Simulated assay, not measured.
Amino acid sequence: MLAGLTYREIGDRLFISAKTVEHHVARMRNRLNCANRTELLALLRTLVADRASDTAGQPWPRRAGR
């Protein structure tokens, strides 16, 4: 997603259908409270940038509720 690939391009790389990719992205949007794909991309880019600048190498934040 961060590379700007379409659902079909992502699906082709993962050997799944574009519809399945769309479903997974929708679930990501819901879990991260993003209204649309653009908002999700902005959040993911921020998370990746924050992680890259973190010299301690902390793991990704845990999901809420688990």
Rank of each mutant, 00 (worst) to 15 (best):
I16G: 08
T55E: 12
R37P: 03
L2K: 11
L47N: 02
R66M: 01
R51G: 08
C34D: 12
V48E: 12
A3K: 14
R29C: 11
F15D: 15
R51Y: 08
Y7M: 06
S53V: 06
L5I: 00
M1E: 01
T20E: 15
R51C: 08
A3T: 13
M1D: 04
A56W: 05
G57H: 03
R63E: 02
L44V: 12
G11Q: 09
D50C: 09
E9G: 06
V48L: 09
R29E: 15
A64W: 04
H24V: 13
R51I: 05
L2N: 07
L40Q: 09
A42I: 11
I10D: 03
A42Q: 13
R8N: 11
A3C: 11
Q58R: 15
N36K: 09
A52S: 10
R31E: 10
T55V: 13
T38P: 10
A35S: 03
G65R: 06
R8K: 12
A3Y: 08
R27I: 12
L14D: 03
V48Q: 07
E9T: 04
P59E: 08
S53I: 03
T46Y: 09
L44W: 05
E9F: 10
A35V: 07
A35Q: 07
R45A: 00
S53Y: 05
R31D: 09
V48A: 12
R37Y: 09
W60E: 04
E9W: 01
P61M: 05
G57M: 12
T38D: 15
A42C: 03
Q58S: 10
T55H: 06
T46W: 08
T20L: 14
R31K: 06
A3M: 09
V21W: 09
T20N: 13
T46A: 09
A26S: 14
R8H: 11
